[in-house]
Design a protein around this nucleic acid. Structure first.
Lengths: 187, 187
DNA sequence: CCTACCGATCGGTAGG
DNA sequence: CCTACCGATCGGTAGG
């Protein structure tokens, strides 16, 4: 698919560094032919964003409904990491090139809102975990960013041949929940 | 300084998206004049990397020497966050455009080694925290990445007008140490 | 989905 | 530090 090809190109070379010629070459067609499917390069990268977002949004609405606090936090971390590592190209483009769409078109405005509502749901889940005592009593704004960093950062280094997503999720959860023989934690 | 101007331009527009004309304009000179100071665009972005790295390296060598496990971990988190937020432009370029220097010149090889030894020192500090029981008994490789993500991710969202670096550091530490109240603060 | 092409912009150089 | 300029590449269009 054209969106997959674009995601791979933009991941390797960046949005500005990757050309439509590169995308076309990956599809074994000519650049001009791309315009049969898309109207502009900006629209193409918008489709990459959308693909990354749409999948992630499905999960989070379901996660919010989980009742057990630990299960809910676990689901949040596992799904964030799972989404990112199963779609490294899309998320690389999404994370490193958001804000490049200068135009405030209806499309990019919709994307920005999609992202906002995603962060909002993520944030609420963290807030509840704090209120329920599953996480320490910290500033929920910073805790949200910290946990997003912990999980999203994955796209910078994760390699499917060398790393294991489940083990990573487990590590993150243990760091957050403080389980294990942590000092001053029993009680 | 020319490196500061370049960092700002590359942060806002990316390495490929930001032109030498942009950098020159920020300095109120002509593009050709930049070549009195630099030999290429790649060299310029290399100088941006170097600036970000050199500062961070100073700290970490000192942090490794701290004896108290909690103090050492605290210093690691505080300095990582402190460096990133005091140099948002440089680190944005560093994190999002590393690997773009295709040439394996002596310079870029030196930079890659600088980065490797930095990650190595960071990693050792996390490993020791696990061994000493300050962090849960998790895979140190993933724990290193998780903590780097937690702290480095800051460059994506931190705004000096709206956020407080010290409060963020405190939140990260409490999440990691699992204490409701701050640990290791009083003497 | 193609060939052919355009205007704009880019990194970099000549020569002062 | 400047004016002037070059070759290459880019996103996008015409017309089929």
């Amino acid at each position: 698919m054209i969106v997959e090809a674009a995601a791979n190109v933009f991941r390797e070379k960046g949005y500005d560094g990757g050309s439509l010629d590169d995308v076309a070459e990956a599809l074994d067609i000519r650049k001009a032919s791309l315009y049969y499917y898309i109207n502009s390069k900006a629209e193409l990268v918008g489709l990459v964003f959308e693909t990354a977002m749409d999948g992630a949004r499905e999960d989070i609405d379901r996660i919010v409904l989980i009742e057990d606090p630990v299960d809910r936090l676990r689901a949040l971390v596992e799904h964030q990491i799972g989404r990112v590592i199963s779609d490294l190209s899309h998320f690389s483009v999404f994370f490193d090139h958001i804000g490049f769409t200068k135009e405030s078109s209806a499309k990019s405005e919709r994307l920005r809102q999609l992202e906002r509502s995603y962060v909002e749901a993520f944030s609420q889940t963290v807030e509840r975990a704090i209120a329920e005592g599953v996480l320490p009593d910290v500033d929920p704004r910073y805790a949200t960013r910290a946990i997003m960093g912990m999980t999203c950062w994955t796209y910078k280094w994760f390699d499917h041949d060398r790393h294991d997503g489940a083990a990573l999720s487990e590590t993150c959860l243990q760091l957050l929940l403080g389980t294990g023989q942590a000092v001053g934690r029993q009680g």
